[in-house]
Amino acid sequence: MSTETESQFEIDGVKLYAKTWTPTGPIKAKLVFVHGYSEHINRYNDFFSRLASRGIQVFGWDQRGWGRSASKPSDWGLTGPTTQVVADVAAFVKDKLGPGDAPLFVMGHSMGGGEVCTLMGDEAYQDLVSQVRGWILECPFIGFSPDSEPSSIKVVLGRLVGRLLPRQQMKNVIPEEYLSRDPAVVQSVKDDPLCHNTGTLEGLSSLLDRTAALASGTVKVGKHVRSIFLAHGSEDKACSYDAAMRWVEQQTSVEDKFSKSYEGAYHQLHADLCKDEFMNDLVEYILKRSGSGGEAPVEAKL
């Protein structure tokens, strides 16, 4: 059982929609969640409630330009540049840290996974990153899948126009059928008015730049990153499975890291046919490292 609490999280005077899922029993660990492109945290209600029932308190917010943080259609996709996106994630994570509290984990899905990787590799946030017990990447956007990669002409033109018209909106549709093998999930995305597939040229260009940096291998994380768990569907049609696996393998400074492939799974592991397996793996990873899984906490060697 769990309770749900809605709130507002303010960053630089901007109020963003936030929500917390809290266990009715002891809090064994805390999890900050960073959502993906064209979605919002209330799509995770069932998933987060199940995590809370296992003793994990979950914190999430609708990022700038998405969900209930975009009060009108003209706000859709107004994420700002990468510096703003990463600063927002860092501010939310910092807000959830506390002395003597349960250990904090950070999880990012898809676009949010790429943002989390970017934060981990940013030297300006080393102290904050070192305070996070573990980082979970669910199908992170580190490269395009063959089914979703845009043409080079479209990318170049988009970046050029984006410098002149950064707030210009543009549809970038990810087919709902790419997200899950569950027809009910696919239909729910189609019916969700907050899944609007609308970005801005600035936001989309920044997203492409972050992804290119990650895919090139130039974003490396140091020993201050205590642990990484990468989970990826082998048949993900939205984000590159190979690029994500390659990126994690390149993080040689992190000793406590592992990855798992979910055979046949698509992009949203938490809402795919493998959701129970993924849930159990995630809970085991978190509780083992928080000392709440019947074993002593796993300590990364720094």
Rank of each mutant, 00 (worst) to 15 (best):
161 V>T: 14
159 R>Q: 10
112 G>C: 11
147 D>S: 12
197 N>P: 07
105 F>P: 07
143 G>L: 06
124 A>K: 13
187 Q>G: 13
141 F>I: 05
140 P>D: 06
192 D>A: 10
78 L>Q: 10
155 V>S: 12
98 G>W: 04
108 G>M: 01
138 E>L: 12
114 G>Y: 03
139 C>P: 11
180 S>W: 00
182 D>I: 03
86 V>S: 13
116 V>R: 05
164 L>A: 15
177 E>M: 00
140 P>L: 01
152 S>E: 10
84 Q>M: 06
174 I>Q: 09
108 G>T: 01
122 D>P: 10
195 C>A: 09
91 A>E: 02
158 G>N: 03
144 F>P: 08
123 E>I: 04
131 Q>N: 12
91 A>Y: 00
104 L>G: 12
179 L>F: 14
150 P>V: 00
163 R>H: 14
173 V>D: 11
145 S>L: 05
180 S>A: 12
163 R>G: 14
177 E>I: 00
79 T>W: 00
175 P>E: 01
190 K>R: 14
109 H>D: 03
186 V>L: 01
140 P>F: 03
186 V>D: 02
101 D>P: 10
159 R>E: 07
151 S>D: 10
149 E>N: 13
192 D>W: 08
156 V>I: 14
169 Q>Y: 09
105 F>W: 04
110 S>V: 00
134 G>M: 08
147 D>E: 10
140 P>M: 02
116 V>D: 10
156 V>F: 15
166 P>D: 06
143 G>P: 12
136 I>Y: 11
168 Q>W: 12
78 L>E: 08
176 E>C: 14
81 P>Y: 07
107 M>I: 02
128 L>Q: 05
177 E>T: 05
114 G>P: 12
107 M>D: 05
189 V>L: 08
111 M>T: 04
194 L>P: 13
79 T>L: 07
165 L>N: 11
173 V>H: 14
170 M>A: 15
158 G>V: 03
128 L>Y: 02
87 A>G: 13
185 V>E: 03
166 P>M: 01
108 G>P: 07
101 D>K: 15
126 Q>W: 03
105 F>E: 00
85 V>C: 12
173 V>M: 12
151 S>N: 09
108 G>L: 04
161 V>G: 13
127 D>R: 01
125 Y>W: 05
158 G>Q: 00
97 L>S: 10
165 L>P: 14
119 L>W: 02
196 H>V: 01
78 L>M: 09
110 S>C: 13
147 D>H: 11
130 S>N: 06
150 P>C: 01
127 D>K: 06
105 F>L: 02
91 A>Q: 01
79 T>R: 06
146 P>T: 11
194 L>K: 07
176 E>I: 05
147 D>C: 07
133 R>V: 04
78 L>C: 13
189 V>Y: 11
113 G>V: 01
171 K>D: 07
154 K>V: 05
153 I>T: 15
107 M>L: 02
108 G>Y: 03
88 D>I: 03
113 G>T: 04
85 V>D: 06
137 L>W: 10
116 V>S: 09
145 S>F: 10
180 S>M: 02
94 K>F: 04
86 V>F: 11
155 V>K: 14
87 A>R: 06
85 V>W: 04
104 L>M: 06
77 G>R: 12
127 D>M: 02
191 D>V: 01
154 K>S: 15
85 V>R: 05
96 K>T: 01
110 S>P: 10
